[in-house]
Each structure stands twice: as C-alpha cells, then as structure tokens.
Amino acid sequence: MNKATGIKAKHQRLVLVAIALVALVGAGLLATWALRNQASYFYVPADILANPPEADRAVRLGGMVERDSMKNAADGVTVEFIVTDGKARVPVRFAGIRPALFVEGSGVVAEGHLGSNGTFVADNLLAKHDEKYVPREMQNMTTDEARKAVAQTK
C-alpha cells in the first residue's frame, strides 16, 4: 500500500494496533489505580482507626476474627469479637444469624457502623475464607506429616 516508504500495510497495522494496545493497557492501569480505594469491598481495622467514618455511616469492616476473642452473650444471639489485620484491632458486636464458616482465626466481613464508643455494630456478617483447601483428615497435620500419610496410602 504505502509504496513511498516501502512499509507493508500489514506491518503498518501491526504497529498501529500495538501502539493502541499499549495506550489501552496504560489507560486501564491508570483507571484501576485511581479506583484502588473506591473499589475495595471493605476497610481493614487499620483504615478504620486511622480515618474513623462518621457515626451511623454504613461501612464494611473486614479482617481476621482474633483467636479466643469471641464472647457469646447470655441472650444466645449476640456475639462480641475482635477483628484484627495484624496492625490494629476493632471490637465488633453482632446480634443475628452467623454464617456457618464464621469461626475464630478465620476471615470475616462485617456490615454496619462504628459506634461512638469505638465498638463496631454489625447488622450482617459475611464469612471470608482463605485460598487453602485441605481435606479434613489432614487439617491438623504439618506438611511433612501429610506427605508421610499420603506416601503410606500408595
């Protein structure tokens, strides 16, 4: 096509599409970078303590349920526990039906608002599990023990 410069049309298209793709990926990365705060599904305890939301503003708090922090109230539905991200801790109170996977040492996302006394009052709890999948028989074994158990069954 472009006989004057000696460039083949398909090479011209290749370069144009490559430049367009680089611009596109750059735009996508900038957009996701700009969204990094808005697109997060929850605040971690450190965020909440650094920038406390106004009282009564609905927010989500996510983190790990601290071990040995869960206290069941006498009414049978209220539970108090501490959510931690390793840097900060926020006490949470919730009354209602808890998801089956809501256990100490596991992840949780609490929907609710920060009370004036610093306790997060949750209206709803969502369980957040991690990416590990382990059969029941192997959950208390270390990696070496598990490997031995697997080797024995062969």
Binding site: A39, V109, D130, E131, K132
Partner: peptide, 15 residues
C-alpha cells in the same frame, strides 16, 4: 485476575 490482589474483596485470592 488481579481484582482479588489489588482490592480488598470477599472472594479469596487465587489458590
């Protein structure tokens, strides 16, 4: 692919 790494999400990171 990176939504679970870039942002806090309810979905867990890739296994």
């Amino acid at each position: 692919h990176y939504s679970v790494t870039w942002w806090n999400s309810l979905h867990q990171p890739p296994s």
